[in-house]
Design a protein around this nucleic acid. Structure first.
Lengths: 205, 205
DNA sequence: CCAAGTACGAACCGATCGGTTCGATCTGGG
DNA sequence: CCCAGATCGAACCGATCGGTTCGTACTTGG
């Protein structure tokens, strides 16, 4: 049997195609901004096919968000690990990656946060919660490796900065956060790894 | 003529009543989560009356958001000025007020940010933009009075913290930001008012 | 080659929603 | 006391939307 089938009539491929197109459209125009009919005609798929694969529009939305959340988290984690072993460099890389995203013309804020604001269904909002948890995990990891006195506290501070930068960039433009978010993150990191008990000098190795 | 008429058949009073009820309902359930019919029956008003006062649902939404934005901005500014003349104390007061808000059971995030995520109409999104500008103005003012080297930069950093804390508190609970947002803000303030050119010692008056 | 499954496309359905209209009712100013 | 204007309540309208169904056609594994 063939390993992959690229032709039509391949359920998995059809499903993936719908998922991709829905990811783009729903992000650009909002969950309620695009109907199932338009979504189908945009992909070149019949309603029956879409409903056989995803059961309901909410089911499609959930899968789209789930996949996107994992993709975004992996993207940020990769950006961090690609920056080497220095936690400060990793943190800077995370905010550099975010800032680059903000400048993309299709940037419309965090899809999961936007979705939660639109869709008051718990099944959707829980995805947003897990999304933030993934971010928190990454940031707390960096804080821990940086030797922060309270890595959990620093992680939460950095999470607020990430989400806040995204919101501000969405509504006031990418230039509004350029440099500022990164600098704030490094400032918080430095402060959390500074021995405040004695004088005002840092305590690197 | 009487100065105020409290009875029925007072257009201004009717209008205000609709506005109040709409503010609560639209915030709690989302702009698209409550229809005009339910809104009317909830206030005890006919559709004709609502449409005579606000023209369209969007018109009502815009007025609701405009009023709420001003109310919120005034509330934060008052919290700051009530904290005395010390900029650091004012900043702490702002984040204390926010944190108190996060703990309120009706807290559902920033109404303006949520509205922008739901309603892709420019007339609504611009209100969110102005809302953030008002916050930025307050925070930049504190940064300036604190003698920050770059008050504009610090203001933007603090704005990200405010919006980020609101998002995180909305999705992960008020306890998730309690103390952390305030401490981060004060850390950024301290760092921005510290003379970094020489050694690592602060330079207060 | 054939049966099973995939897919199309179009029609269809019920519900909801924003907005309009209209006759009846009530209030207050002149 | 009476008319203008505010309000009600309910019916009504057109559009949209999520979801279902069906007849047809095509691909493919056995």
């Amino acid at each position: 049997m063939p390993v992959t089938k690229g032709s039509t009539l391949d359920p998995a491929r059809t499903r993936a195609t719908i998922l991709e197109a829905a990811t783009v459209l729903l992000y650009a125009r909002g969950l309620d901004g695009v109907g199932v009919a338009e979504l189908c005609s945009s992909v070149g798929v019949s309603k029956e096919t879409l409903y056989r694969h995803f059961g309901t529009k909410d089911g499609l939305v959930r899968e789209v968000l789930e996949a996107r959340s994992e993709r975004v988290s992996r993207w940020l984690a990769d950006a961090a690990s690609a920056a080497g072993d220095d936690p400060a460099a990793q943190l800077a890389a995370v905010f550099d990656a975010l800032q680059q995203w903000y400048y993309e013309p299709v940037f419309r804020g965090c899809a999961m946060v936007n979705a939660a604001a639109q869709h008051h269904v718990e099944a959707v909002r829980s995805i947003t919660g897990r999304h933030l948890d993934r971010h928190l995990e990454l940031l707390t990891g960096i804080a821990t490796r940086a030797g922060a006195a309270d890595p959990d506290a620093l992680g939460r501070q950095l999470l607020m900065l990430v989400e806040g930068a995204t919101i501000v960039a969405e509504h006031r433009g990418a230039a509004s956060t350029d440099g500022h978010a990164r600098r704030a993150a490094l400032t918080l990191l430095a402060a959390a790894t500074t021995d405040v008990s004695a004088d005002g000098r840092t305590t690197p190795p």
